[in-house]
């Protein structure tokens, strides 16, 4: 597959499955990176919904669990690169938290790939595009979440 085009029209076309994806973006880097993707008119699949938080460390485990409970097929947490965190070191904590959450969702029968952490800087519009396309493809391959009758 190509790296920056990602034939994205394929995503979501299979079996009428429309993945539900929640993306948490930190205000300073990833949300800005997502904006830059827009300014650069980089195209990507439309199935994700962004929720802005001030810092990726704000993403409470409860948010992730609630989203899965309500039928999310995939959750992506995007924060500043480790050294760039606007709040100095917030994202180091995020990394540890996501690792723990992955273990937890596995016990609930979820594939760990359904939860992902990415570092996306304010200058990485293309990385946002790539991440969203690849993540959507991953979720497409995994199909609906267990709660929606998948896996």
């Amino acid at each position: 597959m190509s790296s920056d085009a990602h034939n994205h029209q394929k995503a979501g076309a299979d079996h009428g499955f429309e993945p539900k994806i929640i993306v948490f973006c930190c205000n300073w880097c990833s949300y800005a990176g997502a904006d830059l993707a827009g300014v650069s008119r980089l195209q990507m699949p439309p199935h994700f919904r962004v929720i802005r938080v001030m810092c990726s460390a704000r993403v409470d485990p409860e948010f992730v669990l609630r989203a899965f409970e309500r039928g999310a097929d995939g959750i992506l947490v995007a924060g500043c690169h480790p050294a760039d965190c606007h709040y100095i070191g917030g994202n180091y904590r995020t990394r540890r938290r996501i690792a723990l959450l992955k273990m937890l969702i596995q016990q609930f029968g979820y594939d760990t790939d359904r939860l992902q952490l990415e570092w996306i800087s304010a200058g990485e519009g293309e990385k946002f595009q790539k991440t969203m396309t690849e993540f959507t493809n991953t979720i497409n391959e995994l199909g609906p979440s267990p709660i929606r009758g998948g896996e």
């Binding site: 929640i22 929720i51 001030m54 409470d60 409860e62 948010f63 609630r66 999310a72």
Partner: peptide
């Protein structure tokens, strides 16, 4: 950015 606020957004999204 209270928990209820973000949870409400999650629910609305899904």
């Amino acid at each position: 950015f209270r928990d209820e606020q973000i949870l409400a957004m999650i629910d609305a999204a899904l």
